[in-house]
Design a protein around this nucleic acid. Structure first.
Lengths: 202, 202
DNA sequence: GTCTATATTTAGATAGAC
DNA sequence: GTCTATCTAAATATAGAC
């Protein structure tokens, strides 16, 4: 699939993410990609296939960007802060938000698409956090009796927090301090819930 | 706005929630409501206004259904379990999920709609939880140094948990035990993070 | 592979009778 | 208020030349 195929995927992706699948016409995609409509149909059998190709492409890109900062050679509080900070910022990235909105919206009609997104994004993030937890348990800083996978769900939910839900809905557009503040508050909770020796607050 | 107005809102709501705004035609709404298209335009100036009316209507309904179970005359663990269980089940209700998906999808193009949804749903739930926390603090069972509003974000995030994210994407369709298990695991974390006297596990 | 031009269907919206 | 019938624009998809 040659020359302009990448331009088509990029243009279609941009439009689908911003306006939603149903609201985007093949004309609009062709125009944005600088291609004729007939070329679209030379590449792909139809609009559904275009969406699937776009999401597969974006998932591959996302899979490379996923991954928080894992550090273990500092105090647990700082290690948690770096993990939470990097992961939350990834979630709040406009690309992540647009992808999330679009996939959520179409998941009832395109379940495969939702699963692919989940595997490329949330599942990879979860696997990363599970690894981080396991290592911290080995270091004796994270409660050893907890199941790493179950705990990953709790940790990731706290990191995402209320802020993500508000931003997804456009209720809030957080600045630098807001994000840092949310992370700091979350770290306090994480320490109380998961650290071997609960540390007193400042 | 007389006789068939309710039927129009109900039919349009059902279609918008299930298929998304852009994918639903006015013809489809008219047919589903048992009404001619001209009648739609007698009620409302256009499709956008129909969406806004639908969401306003559903938000009013939702505002009545919102509200978890608040109990304070049992042990904190049981009180937490009831709160988490009722709230999570509300979130996982198909009506909640469809509304959430649709509003998320359209929030970039209809920010007012997202805000109305937020006020009718998540904000009311948060206010409820904040009240619950304040009462538990008064009873001396919930850590008194914590800010109730900030803590509400942490509590609600943990209740929602990983399960909600998976269900929204259609990754998982939880049965009774799955929900109960998720609630139980969450309660353990909530106790460690927020109870005045961390209780030993079973 | 890529284009222009077009076929066909369906969209949102309205006129006018009752 | 409610209908049938219809207008106009825009949608998905394709034919056929290069």
């Amino acid at each position: 699939m040659p020359r302009k195929y990448h331009a088509v995927l990029a243009a279609a992706g941009e439009l689908f993410m911003r306006q939603g699948y149903a609201a985007v016409s093949m004309d609009a995609v062709a125009k944005a990609a600088g291609v004729s409509k007939a070329t679209l149909y030379a590449y792909l059998p139809g609009k559904d296939a275009l969406l699937e190709a776009v999401v597969a492409d974006r998932c591959a890109q996302m899979a490379e960007r996923v991954g928080a900062v894992a550090v273990h050679d500092v105090a647990l509080a700082e290690s948690l802060r770096l993990l939470a900070d990097s992961w939350l910022r990834f979630l709040l990235d406009p690309r992540s938000l647009r992808m999330y909105r679009m996939v959520i919206a179409e998941s009832p009609r395109f379940p495969d698409l939702a699963r692919r997104f989940f595997e490329a994004g949330p599942a990879r993030g979860a696997a990363f956090i599970t690894g981080w937890i396991t290592e911290e348990q080995r270091l004796g800083r994270f409660r050893p009796e907890l199941d790493p996978k179950v705990t990953t769900g709790h940790v990731s939910s706290l990191i995402r927090g209320d802020l993500f839900n508000r931003v997804v809905l456009g209720i809030e557009q957080p600045g630098e301090e807001r994000i840092a503040g949310a992370v700091a508050a979350t770290v306090e909770v994480l320490l109380r819930a998961f650290a071997v020796q609960p540390q007193p607050e400042a």
